[in-house]
């Protein structure tokens, strides 16, 4: 099983160059049954990442391009009157896919955003009183342009909390950039990818992640982090209990990917920036800087 993960990461790293840590985080997020928010300028490979992961995991994949005029029905689907049968028939929207890429989510109106986020949270869609379950596994990768661009609706803090992680991809480094420029068309490469981790494996892995052991010592550290964010003047508001759970789940997944059966403080530290950054300071997208005081000041042992 662990080999699958290694293979998968290896293949992904061949497509998205120079970002092994971010890919790892993305997979970690998936294993922890969370959703991922990528915040970056266009063209750094957000879509490629989503597409690659979908392909490697053998998930059916759909991209939703968010625009200012997108309506909830465009995401969730609509009931259309079937003249033949004299009844309404539900046409599922793009959200009924195992992996959904919600591109430029901050371009859409809050109404459309919340339709997506509600569905993410509830794992089902209710339209006209009928509940339609979403597929399992279900994974949303949303991308967001840095919020200072004009004509956007940045996600409010309450909605950001729905995403387990927020990552920035950032520009590739010199070496990776060169390879990218020299290399093949990414799109073709993705098409040629094989499934490395079938979804039934993924589901059982997600189950195994929940069974990773968490010691009291680790919970102490986790709680110390949470209470630090609540009392330190560095943050205006601290991590919510939900954020605490998210942190622990992500750390479990990280430990699982590292082939360990118990969570270490290092796992928490590895996922902290991605998990806590957007929850602590939404405006700022330098998560590493946001969590730096935590890593420096909260005692591990």
């Amino acid at each position: 099983m662990q080999n699958d993960i290694r293979d998968l990461l290896y293949s992904a790293n061949r497509i998205i160059l120079g970002k092994p840590y971010k890919i790892r985080l993305a997979l970690c997020c998936l294993l922890a049954r969370g959703h991922l928010l990528i915040e970056d300028i266009p063209g750094v490979g957000k879509t490629t990442l989503a597409h690659t992961l979908a392909k490697l995991l053998g998930l059916n994949y759909q991209r939703i391009q968010f625009t200012s005029d997108i309506l909830p029905a465009d995401i969730l689907g609509t009931s259309v009157f079937d003249a033949k049968n004299h009844e309404f028939k539900f046409h599922p929207g793009p959200i009924f896919n195992q992996m959904v890429l919600a591109d430029e989510i901050n371009r859409a109106t809050p109404k459309a955003q919340s339709a997506l986020l509600e569905a993410m949270e509830e794992q089902h869609v209710t339209i006209e009183g009928v509940t339609y379950p979403l597929p399992n596994p279900f994974f949303v990768i949303a991308t967001q342009n840095p919020s200072h661009q004009i004509g956007t609706f940045p996600l409010p803090e309450s909605q950001l909390d729905r995403f387990l992680m927020r990552i920035e991809l950032g520009y590739p480094d010199h070496e990776a950039e060169r390879q990218l420029l020299k290399g093949q068309n990414r799109h073709k490469l993705i098409q040629s990818l094989e499934v490395k981790l079938p979804s039934d494996h993924l589901l059982s892995m997600q189950q195994s992640v929940t069974e990773v052991y968490v010691s009291n010592a680790l919970l102490d550290y986790c709680q110390a982090i949470i209470s630090f964010t609540r009392t330190s003047p560095d943050y205006h508001y601290g991590l919510s209990p939900r954020a605490g759970l998210a942190l622990l789940n992500a750390a479990k997944a990280w430990a699982f990917m590292d082939q360990r059966d118990a969570v270490l403080p290092e796992d928490i530290q590895a996922v902290l920036a991605a998990v806590a950054g957007h929850r602590l300071r939404s405006g700022d997208n330098d998560s590493e800087a946001i969590v730096a005081p935590i890593l420096a000041k909260v005692a591990v042992l």
């Binding site: 010592a217 290092e266 530290q269 935590i294 890593l295 420096a296 909260v298 005692a299 591990v300 042992l301």
Partner: peptide, 29 residues
């Protein structure tokens, strides 16, 4: 935690050689 006490002894030995474990640094790191 006795294990922690013993581990701290280990850290002390290393700190004698000029390497200090930061308070935010895990054992593995």
């Amino acid at each position: 935690d006795r294990a922690l006490r013993i581990y701290n002894r280990f850290c002390k030995k290393i700190s004698n050689r000029g390497l200090l474990r930061g308070s935010g640094e895990g054992a593995k790191d």
